[in-house]
Design a protein around this nucleic acid. Structure first.
Lengths: 215, 215
DNA sequence: AGAAAAAACGCAACTGAGTAACAAAAGTTT
DNA sequence: AAACTTTTGTTACTCAGTTGCGTTTTTTCT
């Protein structure tokens, strides 16, 4: 007689999602206000009204309260390569995708007009322990991209692996460059055209190699 | 009337060096025997016969007891580029240098016949917290190499920065590949020729770009 | 609906990394 | 040898992360 027939996620699951979200939101708000190192996990747990062990059941480390948002983008590069148009090269697909994300102001590009997102970037890039924790994520990203590239059959094992590493590195540095441009006080409109230009040159370099400049 | 006139380092400095060395040696020995996470800093301090605060006066973090050896190689890539023969390109210098280090069985190449060095690599590459701590080192390495490349005048700011990132990344993955080859049970003599071949292909790729395979 | 099983939670106590304060013991200088 | 500076040990602390256990809540089974 109850009307809860067509809802896949049960009550328990919904509560968990809400607790997780609340935990992350409360944590990031506190981090942005006082700094990552000045806020203890006990503070966060208290503010979110859960116990400390519960907090760690949701997030394995303090850093993950911030980084799970980035973690959600895991394997994006691999998906882009796998889902590219027939006849399009992997590199062309990645290039087009990055430009598109840039125009959409996607936080993963390091670019944003929104002060809140900028503050979030300041937090991540400005906190060494957060930066260090990203390694694990990029490593998995790299591995997935390497798998995707290997599936194209265009290169051997080592080549795919190295290519994946180079692509991920360039992505990361492009985002970093955009963040630096913005935090140095550059106007967003001007920063955006520069970001596109930088991306063009970066992908050109990736495709043509370092030989033209340093070889 | 004493004969200690031509020794720059005083007694105090010598003791400090010895303490530092003893601390690192004892720590690595314990880590190799029981694993990084199973040994506490208190154990290390006790074994080296110093107090815990003293240990942290020598090494800012537990990880640095292991990684200071790697840290000593800081800026090697930048030095190679700056010290290259006249007329030699940066990439050619780095390629030659890597092959040379490989033949010298330098630990930084990830290659070694010595079981002790191999065990050391197993420790570093097999412990996430150690791997995470290398980020800071590679970041500085990257920055120095970028400076060195910029000095060649062959590329703009962004290009130098991206090139440095790519080179450091490739170095790291080459070392990783060598380690994997060896730990998978490959005979050192065979692994060495493969290491040289891999390095050749990696630097070729670096010079010619990904365009040939994925562009 | 009601009982039993499973999952999630809170509490309290614990380990281990890293730090602060202060006093004791060096080494260095005159 | 006395005065000064640097390094060290002791004690006690903060904070991240874990463990054991009893309790509550949700789901599932009948």
């Amino acid at each position: 007689m109850s009307e809860q027939q067509e809802q896949q996620p049960g009550l328990r699951e919904r509560k968990k999602q809400r607790t997780r979200q609340a935990l992350s939101d409360v944590a990031i708000a506190l981090f942005l206000e006082h700094g990552f190192d000045k806020v203890s996990v006990a503070d966060i747990a208290a503010a979110a009204e859960v116990s400390k062990p519960t907090l760690f059941r949701y997030f394995p480390a303090k850093e993950d309260l911030v980084l799970h948002r980035i973690a959600d983008h895991q394997g994006e590069a691999a998906r882009v390569v796998r889902g590219r148009e027939p006849g399009q090269s992997p590199l062309a697909a990645l290039r087009a995708h990055f430009h598109a994300r840039l125009d959409a102001r996607d936080p993963v590009t390091g670019f944003s007009d929104h002060p809140a997102v900028r503050a979030f970037h300041d937090l991540v890039y400005g906190t060494p322990s957060l930066l260090a924790r990203t390694v694990g994520f990029t490593a998995r990203d790299e591995k997935e991209l390497a798998d995707a590239l290997r599936e194209t059959g265009a290169g051997d094992e080592l080549t795919a692996w190295l290519a994946a590493a180079q692509i991920v590195t360039v992505h990361h540095h492009l985002a970093l460059a955009n963040w630096r441009t913005l935090t140095s006080g550059c106007a967003p409109s001007e920063a955006l055209v520069r970001a596109h230009a930088d991306a063009e040159r970066a992908f050109d370099l990736l495709g043509a190699g370092l030989g033209g400049h340093y070889g």
